[in-house]
Amino acid sequence: MNALPVPLGNYIILSGILFSLGVIGVLTARNAIVILMSIELMLNAANLLLVVFARVHGDLGGQVMVFFVLTVAAAEAAVGLAILVAVFRLKGSVDVDRLNILKG
């Protein structure tokens, strides 16, 4: 079997749609937890393309890179959520519109 299930362009467009939804989430969400989840969405869009091109080129490097992305995502989620807990303790909210103490 040396053909992809669907043409390569379909995977790229799917990945692009998921990445753009992540971008929209980061730009529009006010709940900081949803912003973190949108970042996870973008990481997953990148993962999909890594796996697709690992298959296209027959090179395992892409799949190994997904493994590293997974590790980074876990570290980022742990630190990000710890920061959110600290912020919630300080402000009583994770609304990013209220985190304005750096405003001049």
Partner: peptide, 10 residues
């Protein structure tokens, strides 16, 4: 995205 069919490696 460019066109064209890409065959996956065996």
């Amino acid at each position: 995205i460019g066109g064209g069919r890409v065959m996956a490696a065996t």
